[in-house]
Amino acid sequence: MSDSASDRSGGAATGAPAAPRNTPLSRRLIASEVACVLALSLGAAAVSATISFVGTATAPGGLAEQTASLVDPRAGADRPWLDLTWQVYAVVFAMAPVALVLYLLHRDARSGATIGFDVRRPGFDITRGALLAAVIGAGGLVVYLVSWQLGLSTTVSPSSLNDHWWALPVLLLQAVKNGVLEEVIVVGYLMLRMGQMGWSPVRAALTSSLLRATYHLYQGVGMFVGNLVMGLVFCWFYQRYGRVMPLVVAHTVIDVVTFVGSVYLIGRVGWLPG
């Protein structure tokens, strides 16, 4: 009789705490969770980019006279091992917010597969990602060149790494990191949570795209607009197909072309600023 009573009381007779019930997340709790995730990742980057933009826009010479460097050396050229160590460190720990998001999804009885961050459909992901990369990449290059000529964008220097054997692998890692970090958080996770809070698809897409544009604002007004359009296209794709992996592929390909192209083209072709 005592054992049965103990079972019904959730272990109260032995002093053990009752097992918590798996209740749905409230809107307030979801909003708090999203705020924390963004404060640790791309929300903080958006604030930093805004401050950087104000400083650049008010500097002598205007935006076009300023340079925005994406990947910089972290040690002197005479200490390549230290620079490499810092570069790898930056890439690895930049993925911590992604790990946090995946943990939060698992805690909520979901997973990366919920947002299409998996390898179940490699053919679809690669082909659609490559197509998106071609369209968005070409359009982004045109926006950058036109806005730079109009003085609305900074001169973007994708890489200023010293000429070490590991420079290209580090740039490839940076491209993958950018694709995973941005698309998993800004599209997959954020769109899921905004939907859970009852936001309309249009409102969610606009918010996600505005965030993407804002953390690229340090590159100038032109790239703000270009990334806003990119965000809207990516959100539309995600809402239609429910998969973030093609967006990761597309973003990675765009950044690989940008980083590698900067190494081999800037300074060798007259139409590319730098």
Rank of each mutant, 00 (worst) to 15 (best):
S2N: 11
A5E: 15
S6T: 12
A18D: 04
A19G: 06
L25Y: 06
L25I: 02
S26V: 10
R28N: 14
E33S: 10
A35S: 14
L38A: 03
S41I: 07
A45I: 08
A46G: 04
V47Q: 02
S48Q: 12
S48R: 12
S48K: 09
T50P: 03
V54P: 02
T67C: 06
A68W: 12
A68L: 10
L70N: 08
L70D: 02
D72Q: 10
P73H: 05
P73W: 02
D83H: 06
L84N: 07
W86L: 06
V91W: 07
A96G: 07
V98W: 00
L102P: 05
S111H: 07
V119E: 04
R121P: 03
P122F: 03
T127A: 11
T127S: 10
V135N: 12
V135Y: 08
V142E: 11
S147V: 08
S153H: 05
S153D: 09
V156Y: 13
P158V: 14
S160F: 13
D163M: 13
H164A: 15
W165Q: 13
L173V: 11
V176C: 14
V186H: 02
V187L: 03
G188L: 02
M194T: 05
G195V: 00
M197G: 01
W199R: 03
A204D: 04
A205E: 00
S208R: 05
H216C: 02
L217Y: 12
G222M: 08
F224Y: 13
V225M: 10
V225P: 11
G226C: 07
N227V: 13
V229P: 04
Y238A: 00
Y238K: 06
R240I: 03
V249Y: 09
V256Q: 13
F259P: 05
V260C: 13
